[in-house]
């Protein structure tokens, strides 16, 4: 599936302040990208799994599932702008033995659909895969579209698996993995031209497993989502300053791979930094903190996360910098904590 990989574009100057707010991308200069990994992986999987069906709530084109809809028009249900309906109807399809992949933006999946997913899907162990576009701060469109709280929201829901991909490779492998897993899943999704980084790290996505992508003596970054890409980039830069950074990628936020996290955090002398594209409330950071305290492991501990407030509208690079999740912000903060 290694077609349509785009080579990185030439280093450009600083983003113009008037960069469009709606165009969502977490691509930094210097990364290769792959087009619509979710849509293509789902089409691939659909070839051998007729029970897989697609759904969207008037956001098919914006969540890459339109590719599946084009490939299998009779297996795709356009639900219109009715997220709550989609969530509950997905539960119904699952009861009839199908595996719906239902897409919308992460904010609407988390905030608008909560009760419908909780009762209509999770409590009944319905085999539905919710796929949320624009996770965390990946659009400058303002709080309505910035899903800064979806991990916290879904972590609080019993019986649902919560995952956050780093890059195109993660997205592709997650599609198969969640289809093979029986039960409700909430998957964050990166769309459009998605960075490809993990293929350099001898990595495979395994549901429920954290993966140590690189070792390091001074700092252990525990990260999820595209913050793992930021952490890997930061680690390369910090290496030049003689700072040795390990990166533990935690794509499954729930259930948490506590064994691996405790093992890595227990190695003495390292600053532990949890990095996530999510509010500081209720996401991976607090999940790891709780795990460490319960496990009797107490390293120096810091969090890189979005502040607990409604974020501004504006251009994405400016906002990611302002709220501390750009590559530069990650490097600056780790340096100042050392």
């Amino acid at each position: 599936m290694n077609t349509n990989v785009q080579e990185p574009t030439v280093k450009s100057s600083a983003p113009a302040p008037s960069m469009p707010a709606i165009i969502a991308s977490s691509v930094d200069e210097g990364h290769r990208t792959k087009a619509a990994p979710f849509g293509h992986a789902l089409v691939e999987l659909g070839r051998t799994r007729p029970e897989i069906v697609g759904m969207s709530a008037d956001l098919a084109k914006y969540t890459d599932i339109h590719i599946f809809a084009q490939a299998y028009p009779d297996r795709f249900y356009q639900m219109g702008m009715s997220e709550q309906l989609m969530a509950t109807a997905a539960g119904g399809l699952a009861k009839e033995g199908f595996i719906p992949f239902a897409t919308t933006y992460a904010t609407f999946a988390a905030r608008r659909c909560y009760d419908f997913i909780s009762q209509g899907v999770a409590e009944q162990d319905a085999n539905v895969k919710f796929v949320g576009g624009l996770p965390g701060l990946t659009t400058g469109y303002g709080p309505s579209h910035q899903a800064t709280d979806d991990l916290a929201i879904f972590r609080a829901m019993p019986n649902i698996t919560v995952i956050d991909p780093c890059d195109a490779l993660d997205v592709e492998q997650m599609v198969t993995a969640v289809a093979d897993h029986h039960g409700p899943v909430y998957m964050r999704m990166l769309r459009g031209a998605v960075p490809l980084v993990l293929d350099e790290y001898n990595y495979r996505f395994e549901l429920g497993k954290a993966a140590l992508l690189r070792g390091g003596r001074d700092v252990l970054v525990i990260s999820t989502g595209f913050m793992t890409m930021r952490a890997l980039d930061a680690a390369k830069d910090l290496q030049k300053d003689g700072v040795d950074v390990a990166v533990l990628h935690v794509p499954t936020v729930k259930p948490l791979d506590e064994v691996t996290i405790l093992r890595e955090a227990a190695r003495t002398g390292r600053l532990v930094v949890v990095a996530e594209n999510h509010t500081i409330v209720g996401g991976l950071g607090e999940a790891v903190a709780g795990c460490l305290l319960r496990g009797g492991v107490a390293p120096a501990f810091r969090q890189i996360a979005l502040p607990d407030r409604f974020l501004s509208a504006g251009s994405l690079p400016v906002l990611q910098d302002r709220y501390g999740i750009s590559r530069k912000a990650v490097i600056d903060r780790i340096k100042c904590w050392l």
Binding site: S18, P20, A21, G140, Y141, G142, H145, A313, G314, V318
Partner: peptide, 16 residues
Amino acid sequence: YGCDDSRLPMSGMASY
């Protein structure tokens, strides 16, 4: 319109 720190964000908001 739609620029950083503008009073005219792309998506209409009461506080802006």
